[in-house]
Design a protein around this nucleic acid. Structure first.
Length: 593
DNA sequence: GACAGCACTTAGAATACTCTGC
DNA sequence: GCAGAGTATTCTAAGTGCTGTC
């Protein structure tokens, strides 16, 4: 059997893929839909046809009996002003609306949309009363939840129809699912963390704002009646189907394919192949940056220390950001002096660096790490005569770092280290933790622990679920009850055994066997519950999904499943199986990352 | 080489759906 | 059949890194 492997995975500038024998590929099995020839000249497709994006319905005015109040008096708002008021009203329960920046940004933008008369009256946000509007939407939500089965079914059918019509495209003859086929509805901008623009008005996107991308010979999507597109272009060097510019940060937004699509799948595969190539050279790269810690050039030393952090701690590259436009977050290259503390000795360890900064999505990164002496000395040097707000690596940029990496390995960038370290950690942890004699539940606990090690490395956090305490309590109640049952069963078994000793008849013997079986079953159930409780506790603030979806080569997980007889459905849900179809197709139990 | 613009991946929160136990 | 918990899916913000222009 022959399997495909695009040459583009292994280097640039080569334009054609080839087919190579299975023996040369990692894993085995057929490529099926991954088998078509690929070009690497920037052309992403030959044919692209779609219906254009779906626009959410226009604003429906509030019923007359739902009022907005200003300074205690009802005030009828113009349609545009009312619509924006509903955005705020809907968020009244949310913490956002308690924040001054959110309130100010909202009020500023809201006033811009008001009629001159409204502007004359509505001058202070704290005199605005949105509660009736808020209640209207809460009730509406409740009513929707309380609909009959048939009515819900009808709504579902309508949604399915929209999905069917707008949710797919034809790309090079394949029907592919689109990821986000709906234009983002207007609302109030919800930036993460301390975002200076939170609360600003995200305006409604009209067809006149949207650029359509498709193939020239395809059926060009029709704009909604009475409208036209901003532009229709035929650019097959990009993968997006439609785009528009959003008004908050003035950046582009795209309609793109679903991760299950061939195009995305191939890109994903390619990403992991690059990370696998790093495995072959990582020792050399590590030796090099360790040598560079002693370089005479400040630039080289900073680069070497930063790379050490990226490699050891899986930090993100840390591109520069425009000040005042976004929340103040950093990555490795943009760390400031204030983000680290140096401890020559701490808790019995030498040369400890204490990191405390906000990373992507304003998630806090806090870690105390014992580092090599030269790293520590270098950091002391980099921090000398600097203010807390100064850049730690003032002679380094992500561009310079990536240029250097590119010289060390074709296709290598800072983010590849995260993928590599995540995947290799999963593989190693699975090897260390899996016990072939465990039950499937036990093996899954091991898998989750391995997954968790990666999530911790990558600092993937989540807020503790609101229901956590309660559900943990429920689980504990179940465990206690099970323990009680177990004790009782144990006692009954002893009694049955005594009875059998006395009577020595078949009936008594059967009773012993029955009690034994019951005891075994209860023990198993208790073990399962305990495993569940451990897993739950260990997982409460850690998000496993992000690493599973983006950093872990799925072939490692699939090979593990095959090797230990765990059904793939136990670790990948339907969406994940669709996204990783390429890997499911090709992976053997002996796959090595 | 600096910079901006662009295209794409990665991210947690919000919401929708499904399952479980009563 | 219902409520509540758990899980899947959707949403869109926030990153990375490349390319083109000056």
């Amino acid at each position: 059997m022959y399997r495909c492997l695009a040459i583009s995975l292994f280097g640039r500038g080569v334009s054609r893929s080839r087919f190579i024998p299975t023996a040369l590929c990692a894993g085995s099995g057929g490529c099926s839909r991954w088998e078509e020839e690929k070009t690497n000249d920037g052309v992403k497709w030959k044919q692209l046809e779609h219906k254009g994006p779906y626009f959410v319905p226009l604003y429906e005015p509030l019923p007359d009996d739902v009022q907005f109040y200003y300074d205690g008096k009802p005030l009828k708002l113009s349609l545009a002003t009312e619509e924006i008021a509903t955005f705020y009203a809907k968020m009244l329960d949310h913490e956002y609306t308690t924040k001054e920046i959110f309130q100010n940004n909202f009020f500023n933008d809201w006033r811009k949309e008001m009629t001159p008369q409204e502007q004359e009256i509505i001058k202070q946000l704290d005199k605005c009363d949105f509660r009736e509007i808020h209640k209207y939407f809460v009730d509406k939500n409740e009513a929707r939840k309380a609909l009959s089965k048939e009515e819900k079914q009808k709504l579902k059918e309508e949604a399915d129809k929209i999905q069917e019509e707008y949710g797919y495209c034809i790309l090079d003859g394949h029907r592919e699912k689109i990821g986000n086929f709906k234009i983002e509805p207007p609302g109030l901008f919800r930036g993460r963390g301390n975002h200076p623009k939170m609360g600003m008005l995200k305006r409604r996107i009209m067809p006149e704002d949207v650029i359509i991308n498709c193939s020239k010979d395809s059926k060009i999507p029709e704009p909604p009646v009475g409208h036209k597109w901003k532009e229709v272009r035929f650019d097959n060097t990009v993968t997006w189907l439609a785009s528009w510019t959003e008004n908050i940060q003035n950046t582009l937004k795209y309609i793109m394919l679903n991760p299950s699509s061939k195009l995305k799948g191939e890109k994903d595969w390619q990403k992991f192949e690059v990370a696998r190539r790093l495995k072959d050279v990582v020792h050399k790269i590590r030796a090099q940056y360790q040598a560079d810690w002693k370089s005479k050039e400040m630039k080289v030393r900073q680069r070497a220390v930063a790379l050490y952090f990226i490699d050891k701690l899986a930090l993100r590259a840390g591109n520069e950001k425009e000040e005042g436009e976004t929340a103040d977050t950093v990555g490795c290259c943009s760390l400031r002096v204030e983000h680290i503390k140096l401890h020559p000795e701490l808790d019995g360890q030498e040369y400890v660096v204490e990191f405390d900064f906000l990373g992507k999505d304003s998630i806090r990164y806090y870690n105390k790490v014992s580092v090599e002496k030269p790293v520590f000395k270098n950091l002391q040097h980099f921090m000398k005569n600097k203010d807390p707000g100064d850049d730690l690596f003032d002679h380094l940029s992500t561009t310079a770092l990536n240029k250097h990496l590119q010289k060390l390995m074709d296709g290598l960038t800072a983010k590849v280290f995260r993928t590599y370290n995540a995947s290799i950690t999963l593989q190693e942890q699975l090897k260390a933790l899996t016990n072939p004699d465990d039950s499937v539940a036990g093996k899954l606990l091991s898998y989750n622990r391995a997954n968790r090690a990666v999530a911790i490395l990558c600092n993937h956090q989540r807020s503790t679920p609101k229901t956590f305490e309660k559900s943990m309590q429920n689980l504990q109640t179940k465990i206690d009850a099970k323990k009680e049952q177990l004790e009782k069963a144990q006692q009954e078994l002893e009694e049955a055994e005594d009875e059998f000793k006395d009577k020595k008849n078949a009936k008594a013997e059967a009773n012993v066997q029955k009690k034994k079986k019951l005891l075994e079953r209860l023990k198993e159930q208790l073990a399962k519950l305990s495993v569940q409780a451990t897993d739950k506790e260990e997982n409460k603030q850690i998000a496993l999904g992000t690493s599973k979806l983006n950093y872990l080569d799925p072939r490692i997980s699939i090979a593990w499943c095959k090797k230990f007889g765990v059904p793939i459905e136990k670790i990948f849900n339907k969406t994940q199986r669709e996204k990783f179809a390429w890997a499911i197709d090709m992976t053997d139990e002996d796959f090595e990352f």
